[in-house]
Amino acid sequence: MAYVITQPPVASVEVAGTSDRFPVRRIFCVGRNYAAHAREMGRDPDREPPFFFTKPADAVVDTGATVPYPPETNNFHYEAELVVAIGNGGRNIAEKDSLSHVWGYAVGNDLTRRDLQLDAREKGRPWDWGKAFDRSAVIGPVHAVEQVGHPAEGAIRLTVNGEVKQDADLTDLIWSVPEIISILSHSIELQPGDLIMTGTPAGVGALVEGDTCVVTIEGIGSIETKIGPRE
C-alpha cells in the first residue's frame, strides 16, 4: 500500500534517561481539576463533574524549545500540569485497576489562548481554538513508573522569569489519576500512546515575547519554554 501524500511524522515526546521516544496517539486534558483554579475561572469545583477537552498529538513540544507567540491572541497563558502516559489501553477500567495502565509520568505546560477560550466559553462553543493550536502542549521527558512510582503528592510549581506564579501540591487535585483514567475509559477506549494532562493549579497568567517559563513537579523534574516573537 502507498499513501497518496507524504505520511506525517509520528508525534512523540522524550523518554527520560534514554534516546528513545514515547509515541503520542492522543492528548486528553482535564478541565478545572484544582479547586482554587476552578474558582479563579468563575466556576464551583464542588458541583461540577470532571470534563475533558483534547489537543492534537502534533501539538507536543519538547522542553527547551522556543514557542513563538501564537497568532490571533493577546492573552497567551501558561498552565502547569502533571501528565500521565498510557502504556496499556482499555475500556471501562475499574478505578482500582487504573494505575496498571500507566507507563509513566511527565511535566507539562498546557499553553492557552485565553481570550479565544473565554470567548468560546461565553458563546457555548468548543474550546479548540483556545486550546488545540500548534505547539500548545509542552511536555517533558516521560519517566517510567519503575523510576518514579505513581506520584500522588508533591509540589507543582511554575515560574516566569524566575518569579513563582503557580505553587500547589498534587494532593490538591479534585479528581485523582486513578479516577481520571477510569472516568475517561468509560467514554472512550484508551490506547497505548494516549497522554492525559491532569489540570492546572490556581495562578494562571499571561506570557509575553521573551519570557522564560519553567514548570517543576517534585520527583519528576522540570521543563523550560522560551516565548519567541509573534508568528
Rank of each mutant, 00 (worst) to 15 (best):
140 G>H: 01
90 G>V: 11
64 G>N: 08
89 G>F: 07
58 D>A: 09
148 V>M: 01
117 Q>F: 13
125 R>L: 14
122 E>I: 11
71 P>C: 08
138 V>Y: 06
125 R>S: 14
111 L>A: 11
74 N>K: 11
128 D>Q: 15
156 I>H: 01
57 A>S: 10
143 H>F: 04
60 V>M: 01
60 V>F: 05
72 E>F: 13
119 D>N: 13
144 A>M: 06
82 L>R: 04
146 E>M: 01
159 T>S: 01
127 W>R: 11
160 V>C: 01
157 R>F: 00
59 A>F: 08
112 T>N: 11
153 E>L: 03
69 Y>Q: 12
122 E>A: 11
102 V>G: 02
90 G>K: 15
83 V>K: 06
128 D>S: 13
94 A>R: 13
136 S>L: 00
52 F>A: 09
135 R>V: 04
67 V>A: 05
54 T>Y: 14
80 A>G: 07
75 N>D: 15
158 L>E: 02
76 F>W: 08
135 R>F: 07
96 K>V: 12
133 F>Y: 12
96 K>G: 15
65 A>M: 09
55 K>F: 00
144 A>L: 06
105 Y>R: 13
78 Y>V: 05
100 S>L: 13
86 I>C: 04
155 A>C: 08
125 R>V: 10
145 V>T: 07
85 A>N: 03
50 P>V: 04
109 N>C: 15
133 F>V: 00
141 P>D: 03
122 E>F: 10
140 G>D: 03
69 Y>I: 09
150 H>K: 00
124 G>F: 05
99 L>R: 06
116 L>A: 08
75 N>L: 12
84 V>D: 13
104 G>M: 01
83 V>R: 04
106 A>K: 01
100 S>N: 14
108 G>S: 04
160 V>Y: 03
78 Y>F: 09
51 F>Q: 09
120 A>C: 09
98 S>H: 10
88 N>V: 14
134 D>L: 10
131 K>C: 10
85 A>P: 06
75 N>R: 15
152 A>K: 04
143 H>K: 01
63 T>M: 04
91 R>E: 11
